[in-house]
Simulated assay, not measured.
Amino acid sequence: MPPVISAVSPSQGPTTGGTTVTVTGTGLTGATAVRFGSTPATSYTVNSATQITALTPPGSVGSAAVTVVSPTGTSNAVSFTYIAAAVPVVTGVTPSSGPTSGAVTVTLTGTGFTGATAVLFAATPATSFTVNSATQITAVTPAGSPGGAPVTVTTPGGTSAVSPTAYFYYAAPPVLLGASPSLGAAAGGTTVTLTGSNLLNPTAVRFGSTPAGSFTVVSSTQITATAPPGTGNTQITVTTPGGTSNPAAFAYVAAPTLTGLNPGSGPTVPGAVITLSGTALSTASAVKVGTAAAGFTVVSDTQITVAVPAGPVGPVSVTVTTEGGTSNSLTYTRVAPPGI
């Protein structure tokens, strides 16, 4: 008896051919041909006596009779419909930017994606892609050069046109050349200027693993950031669509403290020298006696000598300012010279 076909699935496909269809029925063992109209299938495989998979040849719009030929005769016919293949259209790429190293999973939206055979970023094939539906593809970006790469999809219906909405932008990795100042208060709040290259569109500035209190992009070569609270040595990094930068060194400095002032009094005229003792004094940038700036010498992290400026009789506060902030105050008293 000749073979019998009960179904063909799917029952339609593009006129360009290339659709894999499953033919089910009985008596299919030993099939010598599968035809779509009068045209042989591009290829076919007899899976069992009840199933054949075949690849459709190109055809004309409309219905084509599918038949199976075997030594026992030719089967009944089951209809397969050829439809005009739609040219795919890409309307969106999300995310639309990433590093030149590739490996970013992007979602393409549009129409006519069924049967996609290629996804290109400029002239480079996607590392991999999956057709989720006729309107969505997920693809993994290949490595690329800095700049915009048109994204195209190829299906049996053709290749999508390049459009402004179908671009992926490769960003060069950010590079940091330095941070100024490279020291800041442990309490945070220090404004740090980062210099480098490819610093546009940052998504994060971090001091170690802690996000900056805030940051502002000045240009592609400069960012200002507010240091968060921290301790010890850390590293600043900038993250952009191009990746995460090399680190720039930054150190947190403890706030200075004053524990002693000797001598505690002196003349109203300049020339008196006092010794301040305390902690975290090595980065001192200013010493004030009252509101006046005083000359000073850092002896060690725990000692500073200060030349007291002239001033009126009475007590004044003495403070030290370092990279870690301004210290507590101690009192120095100016005394009048003896009368004659």
Rank of each mutant, 00 (worst) to 15 (best):
T244L: 11
G232Y: 04
T259M: 00
S220A: 15
P241H: 07
A255V: 13
P256Y: 04
T234S: 04
A251N: 12
S245F: 09
P241L: 09
I223T: 11
L258W: 10
T221W: 12
P256R: 08
N262K: 13
T224R: 14
T237P: 00
A255S: 15
A227D: 01
G230Q: 08
A225Y: 13
G243R: 07
L261R: 05
A254F: 02
T226H: 00
S220K: 12
S265W: 11
T237S: 03
V253D: 03
G232R: 03
A212K: 07
S219N: 10
P229A: 01
T240F: 08
T224V: 15
S245G: 06
G264W: 08
P211I: 00
T257Y: 00
T216F: 12
P241M: 07
Y252F: 13
T224G: 10
G243E: 01
A249Y: 10
V218M: 05
T224M: 11
T221C: 10
F215T: 06
A248C: 05
V217W: 12
T226D: 05
G260A: 15
Y252Q: 05
F215K: 10
L261P: 01
P267A: 13
P247H: 05
P263M: 02
N262W: 08
N233K: 05
V218H: 07
T231A: 14
G230R: 09
T237L: 02
I236K: 06
P228Q: 00
N246I: 07
A254Q: 12
L261C: 02
L261M: 02
T210H: 12
T244N: 10
P228E: 00
G242Y: 02
T239Y: 04
G232F: 04
A212R: 10
V253K: 08
Q222N: 11
G264V: 14
S245D: 02
V218C: 00
S214F: 15
G260M: 10
T257N: 08
T234W: 03
S219Y: 10
G232P: 04
G242T: 01
T234F: 01
T257W: 00
G243F: 07
I236T: 05
T240D: 06
G230V: 06
A227L: 05
Q235A: 15
G260W: 11
T237K: 08
N246R: 09
A227F: 08
N246G: 06
